[in-house]
Design a protein around this nucleic acid. Structure first.
Length: 643
RNA sequence: GCCAGAAUAGCUCAGGGGUAGAGCAACGCUCUCGUAAAGCGUGGGUCUCGGGUUCAAUUCCCGAUUCUGGCUCCA
């Protein structure tokens, strides 16, 4: 038979030569490092005989697929270790994931302390060099083999149509698995079990919760150590740690879960961001509103929140038990009510409402996370009510605003998600399949035309329409939505919103729900991680710190500070009787972007000595010139502080 | 809500059945200093809260609360 290699060279082999022997014919080292073989684009074990002419690629750990196979095999090795230690264990799924792998176990109670035991057993298994044996079995045989395993039986039932199944035997562990796998357990070189978490079977909260062990493995100890060090450094940027250390926010158990308090410093950042957005939106034709933070249930019944979002709302009793109110989880129905206060001409469309809107959502107790998932937050919210023919242009104008905001903030690594509905989830979504299909088609067309790179996700839409979500990955590798733009096909009709068209008839407008900077809490969390706590000059709560050389210069420093403060800059004076080095150290630890030193020389000359966070010092700068430069940094919102 | 961890001084953490300790911070005194930590001293704790076991609990057990990672949900 003829084998074609990736470089298009061809070579003759006997029929049924294994991938391993083909690799061996190229180089001994290649055969030794081969974890699998790609036969006409399909991955198979390296020991698999090749039966006919084929294009062959030998997969090693240097290939992305190779690493994935390696980690999947690592998961099996972990499962074998667990099986040896806990013979009654039942196995769920055990896939390779982005940075490692996991396995879901049932019928066993795993604690953090058990991970060490499992790791030790895995090391034993590594040394035993147990071969991964692949067996192809019929559906009937599979049902017999796994009759005592409810999870495997469910999988088998799902795979029902395919006549042949493969399973892998690793020592005493037989697992239903498509493979491929590395040849034997001795291939595993470096691994670490990371943590235990609960995970619902098939991701459904109605199902039983299994014990999931997260772990990772690498081809070498060095790569594993590098990865763990990289994780450690990423976690050093954790907004929840840095934000508290820098005194930007705190929580208090008497206030409650998911209710962070912004300190004066954190509040300053929020206020600066808010001014930036409000000014920018007003410039772009938004009309600002201020609407109530709570309303009668009547309003939410019209909007659909009562039906689709009630679990997420804080509900309050009014004058009597039947008279229910709710804190608002969204701003939309309030702005729709405002829209309806007058008649609207087609000439006056679109109407763009914006509001700095405090919202309340009754998240489940386990969901809260620093400033990222909270029960009360402030959204830079807005609704564009427009004619259908204006939808695309308005959507694009929102994208332009978001892009401007992201660029100004220096937000990197954003991804775009086109979030669609799940037609099978009748409870979560407004039941109007045609409207869903058509609005999703419209949104997709807009996105395609805009040239934005996006991916699609089912079941992520809002209850009233599809959306574009702008996603950010936090230091834990978890994605969160920071900004969202949504098309709403339902609300205008529900609220009987109208405009008078050119022909005198009453038409129903389209609505775009949008944010510009997202909600302040989450965005600040994102920024803390993006900047690793080092906020740019224009956003820093304390922009300038004046340090005095000795205590006698205190009152002069105060007059300098006053002059700087009068220019609209945020400044503090460190008059402590500490050494200059100590004061510099403290200011650097607090990430104050500009440190100004004042000594007798500066006092006589009317100058300042300016130090930036990078350690650079500019001496003898005239005070007026310094203030001018700072004002410039504020105005341009420069991400770099250079003098 | 569920699974796994954690909670000791303002902060970071040590300790351990016989009512607590360090460093930093705070405060006081000395020093008056030129760009990443001057010296000495002082005060500061219901060991998260509520039960239980015990002669004795901060320590062991149970429950609650909050914080952390994950699942489900979500901006």
């Amino acid at each position: 038979m003829q084998i074609t290699f990736p470089d298009q060279t061809k070579k003759e082999f006997d029929k049924n030569t294994t991938g391993y022997d083909i690799a061996l014919s190229i180089a001994e080292g290649l055969a030794r490092n081969a974890v699998a073989v790609s036969i006409n684009g399909t991955l198979a074990d390296i020991s698999r005989p090749v039966t006919e002419d084929a294009e062959i690629r030998i997969i090693t750990l240097k290939d992305a697929e190779g690493l994935e196979i390696y980690r999947h095999s690592s998961a099996h090795i972990m499962a074998l270790a667990v099986k040896r230690l806990y013979p009654d264990v039942l196995l769920g799924f055990g896939p390779a994931i982005e940075d490692g792998f996991y396995y879901d176990f049932d019928n066993v109670e795993l604690k953090q302390a058990d991970l060490e035991k499992i790791e030790a057993e895995m090391k034993k298994i590594m040394n035993e060099k147990i071969v991964f044996e692949r067996h192809v079995i019929s559906l009937k045989e599979a049902k017999k083999l796994f009759k005592d395993d409810p999870y495997k039986m469910q999988q088998i039932a799902k795979l029902g149509e395919s006549e042949q199944l493969s399973c892998y035997k690793l020592g005493d562990l037989i697992d239903l698995c498509r493979g491929p796998h590395v040849p034997h357990s001795g291939f595993l070189k470096a691994f670490k079990l990371l943590r235990i978490a609960g995970a619902y079977w098939l991701g459904d909260s109605n199902n039983k919760m299994l014990s999931r062990v997260y772990a990772t493995s690498f081809p070498s100890k060095k790569e594993l150590d590098d990865y763990l060090e990289m994780r450690r450094q990423a976690e050093e940027r954790d907004h929840n740690k840095v934000g508290r250390e820098l005194d930007l926010f705190m929580t208090d158990k008497n206030v409650g879960q998911g209710l962070p308090l912004l300190t004066p410093k954190g509040s300053t950042i929020k206020i600066i961001l808010q001014r930036f957005i409000e000014d920018e939106e007003i410039r772009r034709g938004y009309l600002y509103t201020i609407t109530p933070l709570l309303a009668k249930s009547d309003l939410y019944k019209i909007s659909g929140h009562w039906e689709h979002y009630r679990d997420g709302m804080f509900i309050l009793e009014g004058d009597n038990a039947e008279d229910l109110y709710a804190l608002r989880p969204m701003t939309c129905p309030f702005q729709y009510s405002l829209y309806n206060r007058t008649k609207h001409s087609y000439r006056d469309m679109p109407v763009r409402y914006a509001e700095t809107s405090t919202l309340f959502r009754n998240e489940s107790s386990g969901e809260m996370h620093g400033l990222i998932r909270v029960r009360q937050f402030t959204l830079a919210d807005g609704h564009i009510i427009c004619r259908p023919d204006q939808l695309e242009e308005e959507f694009n104008s929102v994208l332009d605003l978001i892009n401007y905001v992201a660029t100004t903030l220096g937000l990197k690594n954003l991804t775009y998600r086109f979030s669609k509905w799940d037609p099978n989830d009748k409870k979560k979504y407004i039941d109007n399949p045609e409207a869903w299909e058509s609005s999703q088609k419209i949104l997709k067309a807009i996105l395609d035309k805009s040239g934005l790179e996006y991916y699609e996700a089912d079941g992520e839409a809002a209850f009233y329409g599809p959306k574009l979500d702008i996603q950010f990955k936090n230091v834990w590798g978890k994605e969160d939505t920071i900004i969202t733009v949504q098309i709403d096909f339902a609300s205008a009709e529900r609220f009987k919103m109208r405009y008078t068209d050119a022909d005198g008839t009453e038409k129903t407008p389209m609505i775009i729900h949008r944010s510009s900077i997202g909600c302040y809490e989450r965005t600040i969390a994102t920024l803390i991680e993006q900047y690793a706590g080092k906020f740019p000059f224009w956003l820093s709560p304390e922009q300038i710190r004046l340090l005095t050389i000795n205590e006698e210069l205190g009152s002069y420093a105060e007059t300098v500070a006053l002059k700087i403060r009068n220019a609209g800059l945020r400044v503090a004076v460190d008059k402590r009787g500490e050494t200059l080095g100590k004061k510099v150290l403290d200011a650097q630890h607090e990430y104050i972007p500009v440190i100004v030193t004042i000594g007798n020389k500066e006092k006589e000359e009317g100058t300042v000595s300016v130090r930036t966070l990078d350690g650079k010092v500019v001496q003898g700068m005239q005070l007026d010139e310094f203030i001018k430069k700072c004002e410039e940094l504020n105005k341009t919102r420069n991400l770099e502080t250079v003098f």
